[in-house]
Structures are given as C-alpha cells and as structure tokens.
Design a protein around this nucleic acid. Structure first.
Lengths: 333, 333
DNA sequence: AATGCTAGTCTAAACGTTTAGAAGGAGCCA
DNA sequence: TGGCTCCTTCTAAACGTTTAGACTAGCATT
C-alpha cells in the first residue's frame, strides 16, 4: 500500500480510504490510485487488516468425522451459510479422539477464529472445563455438553428412537436388539433412553443382553451386531444408533449368512442419500441436516454481531422416521 | 504481551524469547514471566505473529463437493496430513459452480493462506488464467488444468475406464452405455477416451447414442441413465463415470422397473465403503484416495519449505477395478 | 590492567493496515 | 475582509508481535 501511495503521490490514508470506501476521494486521485494499484498489482494484506480490526472473519468448525455423510452434509451447509455473509470456515475432524480434539481446538484458536462450531467427541465432563476456558463465541451441535454455557443445536434423540422402536414393536417385534453409541455422550444416552421408554410404554421387558455397545464407527457396529446375531435366542429386529454402525451391522448380517428383512429386520439412525436405491431399502430416522447447519450458523452469527452476553439458547429439532422395506411384520403367534 | 512484560518487570523481547525459546532466559526471569502469564491469562495473538512472520500456517482446500464421499475422504486425508505438521486447513466447496469457485478462491486468498490445494470445477481454459494470477504455492488434484504450471496429482483415468470397459466386453457385452461426466473437464474427457479405446481394442463399434452426458451429480446420472434405458435397443450394460451419477443410475434402473444385474449390468467409477454390503454389490473402480491426499499434501509442503521455483511435478496414480456382482456374463449368441 | 568472551537482557525498528483528528483550501455569507 | 462550513487529504498513532543489534556485567585470559 505504501508503494501504491508513493506511485500515486498520495498518502496511505487516502489509498485505504479509497479501497474501503470509508471517505470520498476526488476523481483525480481515484484515477491515479487505481492506476497505481493495477500497475503494481497490489493486493491488500489481510493479516495486517485483521490485526488492526481484531477480527479474521473466519470461524472454526470441528466435527468428529468428516467422512461420515451426516457431518459432510453439516459441514457443507454451514460452509455455505457462512460464506454467504463473508465468513470462511476452517474445518477440523477429531476422529472421536479427545486428545486430537483438544489439539484441533487449540489449532483453531491459534488461528484466531472469531467463533467456533463444535460437534464434541468423548466424555462431556472432560470437555466442559476445556471449552469453558475458550473465551470465544461458540455453538455446540449434535451432542450437548452438560453444564456448559453455550448455544446448542441438537436433535430430540429420545423421541426419534422412541418412534422407531415403537414402530418395530407395532410390527410385532419383541426381541429388539439395540446397537448403542458411546454412553459417555449425551447422544448415546438419549437415544438409548428412547429405546427403553418405547419398550416400557409397550410393556415389553428390557433385556440387558439385547443392548450392545458400538463405538459409533463401522467396526464397532459390526462387533455389536455379531454379538446379537450369535445369541441363542436371536433378536428378530435390530436398531442401530448411527449410520456408520449401520454399515457394520449390515456387513455382520451378510457375514452371518442372514438376509434382511427376511431373517432379521433393521432400522437405524441417520438417512442415506441412496437408501431407497440399494437393497435392502433401509428404514431410517432422518435428521433435518440442513436445518441443523443453518441454525448453528445463525446462532453463531447472532453472537458475533449482537449481544455476546445473552443467555445461551438451546435449539432442539425433530427427526423423521422414514419407513422403507428393511423391517417386516411378524405374524402373531 | 506488554502487560505480561510490565507485570514481570522485563521487556517484551524477553517475554517473546521465553515463549518461543529463541534465547536462553535466566531461571529468575523465567519464573517471574511464567507467573505473570498465568496470572494474566495471556494468550499470544496469532495474527500479529503471522503479520510479522509472513505466514499463517494455514492452507486452503477447495473441492467441488464436500458431500461427495470421494472428496470427503480427500479432505479428511489432507487435513490429517497437514495438521500433523502444524498446518490448519480451510475448506471450501465450489459445488461445480465456476462463479462460486472464483469467490471461494478469493475468500481463501483474502485469508492469506500460505498455499492452496484445488480440485477445479468447470472448464479448464477459464480457470487457467485465474489460477496463474494466484502467486501462491498450489497443487491441483483430481483434474488437470491444461497449460497451468502447477503441481498435480491425478488418476490415470483413461487406463482405469479402459480396464473396466474391457472387463464388460470380456463378459460378452457389446452395447455398453456410457454416462459421461462433463467433457469440459480433463477427467470427463480422459474417462471417455478410456471407454472408446477399449471398444476400439475389442473391435466393438462406437455408437454415438450410447454415450450420454451427465452433470456429475445424481440428477444428471438419472437423466442420462433414463435416456439409455428407454432406447429401443437397450444397452446390456452401463458404465457410470462417477459415484454420484451412479446413485442416479441405480435410481433410474429401479424406476424403469429393471433389475441389476439380471436385466442390466452396471460398473462405475469410485468405490463406496458400503459397496459390498448393499445389493447390488457394485463392481467399481477404486481410487487410491489416501495416496492422492497424501501426495497432494506433500507436494504442497515441499513447495512451502523448499524450492518454490522448481519445475512443476505431475503425479499420476492408478485406479483398481474391484469386481463384485453387478455385471453378469452374457451367453454367447 | 587491558582485552575478549559469554550469557542475559533490552531498545527500537519493523510487519501493513486502519482511523482519529489535524490541516488546508474552496465557497459562501455578512 | 473575516469568519464559517464543508470537503478532501494528510499525519501519526495505534494493533501485538519478532528480531537484529546494542548494552551490561561477570569472568577468564593475556
């Protein structure tokens, strides 16, 4: 900018004024400055600008796994919503690893992001103190973090699983296997409680051995499903608590030489874009992904522009059970 | 930092020296400074630091569609590789829209990224001049950009499709439909040429109407497949040139009331993590995604650290045909 | 006693912007 | 002519670091 100013024989203040349109600049100088800019090929240094303005117009987004289509969708939506208003998005993936998660957050903070959107991994309790120490606008998505004063966008997980389980019960299923996500997360607990509540409502006894813990990845889903499928009194249906574990579940069913829905019914959390194209056509709970992303972006923008000290807002959205063909009705005995 | 220096009664230079470990600091001062830092809760301002150092330790990554599992995987791999060496990744998605792409690149440059990894969208020619004007280390992945002096990592697309097509021919197929990606991209052209070359090799005539252009999204794949399926002399096999179009293709087959592989065989580009779990078990060309991501990250790091003026390197990796059950052998007539 | 070396610390000048407030000039009115 | 206002432009001080080079004191060497 100094070079431009010299070439145009004006002060840097005038160049800055012209570029930012903060003050009127006479036509004569405007022309000279513009000529100098294009002659030199000047590009404003964004770092110096950020330093002076105290904002980077960048937000950090941390998810547990970009490869998970659910989060890929979330990332795309948030990215789009924030780009529209001039913000860039720095994406990190914690791979469900709390140590990595801490590193990533530090990495983001060290890039001086103006705000954060986080889908937390690992145990709430551990994370809480760490996040509380981050003095930056922040919204938590997907899972909650008990006791943390931050905006959140979450699904009504209990209700969603309750609906799906009730649907299975309605088809006549009594032994329903449940492949759970990690119970150290609010999501894992809420979804499981939906399952329990549905059974209770229907008067079906809750059987400990029908609930198997997965790790929310494909491998965990596979192990858990195998456990269920090899029990002497095999369940007639399985509910899988997230999309990656569902893939593992289906692989286990295949490896066990069984067929869905003939030998075993399957319902699961999270929809797939191809669910009605490949067989078995899965019955799923679809999350309103777009809405979650938009809400998260908007909550953060509100904080960035507006009242930073307002009470935290907690948005809860509803899932939707999409019935396809992976669950069959049991004949009444 | 000034506050810390004052509180510890030292100069800012000493504080900086301690924090960065650039010079030895006596135990007495070390203790005083550390006490002051934790008392004040000081955190180094990364922007000021970047300004002084002239580097942000951040790279920009632009893909055409984060929701595409292929790119999600690429993003995750690159992110991991760069995080490991202290770089953050700013991700943008152009949604195959060249105007949006230009905006995103400007957005990234305006954040003063140290380098760029780009999977270009749209016509090569348009992009070339724009990218050439970006004076920053850069590597192009997935597609090439004719005439642009940049490092690239690409797949041997022609060879991959040639293999797949030859496989179909070997099964006895003669009328093989081809659902092409946009021919304004190198990827689109190279893949198509693999198809043509395989036919030529086998002495099978190339039929214009068997090649239908998709838009590389699901909707385009659907339209193209429908076109093929409703021809009087329906092809016995279809090759779909990317993963999203494949979903569209399968949807079209379903909507046409046909079954794969009984009524029509399907092979396609890009593997799915669930391809061997859901039916039909697709025969696909798998790209070495991890390798592509790693190579891209390493090429960029080489540029960032080393010789910025070295001749551009062009890496080409090989795909792998994974035969499953979506293609059936035709009885010899 | 003069000199040199080492270790630890400091001063001050960058890095490239933005912006408050000063300065200068033109036009207008009494 | 003097006093006002308005418009444009400039000066200079931030923003929070890093770092070359100066300085000091203590100690060993000649």
């Amino acid at each position: 900018m100094l070079d431009v100013a010299r070439a145009a024989q004006v002060s840097v203040a005038t160049v800055s004024a012209l570029i930012n349109g903060t003050t009127r600049v006479s036509p004569a100088l405007t022309q000279r400055i513009e000529a100098a800019i294009s002659a030199i090929g000047y590009e404003r240094n964004a770092i110096a600008r950020s330093l002076k303005l105290g904002a980077t117009k960048t937000i950090g987004l941390l998810v547990t796994d970009i490869r998970n289509p659910f989060f890929a969708d979330i990332v795309a939506t948030i990215q789009y919503a924030l780009n529209r208003v001039g913000y860039a998005v720095m994406v990190c993936s914690s791979d469900e690893d709390t140590a990595l998660q801490d590193m990533q957050i530090k990495l983001l903070l060290d890039r001086a992001v103006d705000g954060l959107i986080i889908a937390p991994a690992g145990e709430d309790v551990m994370l809480k103190d760490f996040l509380a120490s981050v003095r930056r606008p922040m919204v938590i998505i997907d899972r909650t973090c008990e006791g943390l004063d931050a905006d959140t966008v979450t699904l009504d997980n209990r209700k969603a699983v309750l609906d799906a389980t009730s649907y299975l019960v309605g088809l006549g299923h009594r032994r329903i296997g449940y492949i759970a996500g990690p119970l150290i997360t609010s999501t894992g607990r809420d979804r499981l409680s939906g399952y329990r509540d549905a059974l209770t409502e229907a008067g079906v006894p809750y059987v400990e051995e029908l609930v198997q813990g997965g790790d929310s990845r494909e491998a965990g889903g596979y192990r858990a499903a195998m456990q269920l499928l090899t029990q002497r009194d095999r369940p007639s249906a399985i509910f899988s608590a997230n999309n990656l574990m569902t893939i593992g579940t289906m692989r286990a069913i295949r490896d066990a030489g069984l067929s869905c829905p003939d030998d075993i019914s399957v319902a699961c959390f999270d929809d797939f874009p191809w669910a009605d194209v490949f067989r078995p056509h899965l019955t799923t709970i679809a999350q309103p992904v777009q809405a979650i992303g938009e809400y998260a972006a908007n909550l953060l923008l509100d904080r960035l522009f507006g009242q930073a000290d307002e009470a935290p807002r907690r948005l809860v959205v509803q899932g939707r059970l999409i019935v396809r063909e992976s669950c069959r009705a049991l004949a009444r005995p």
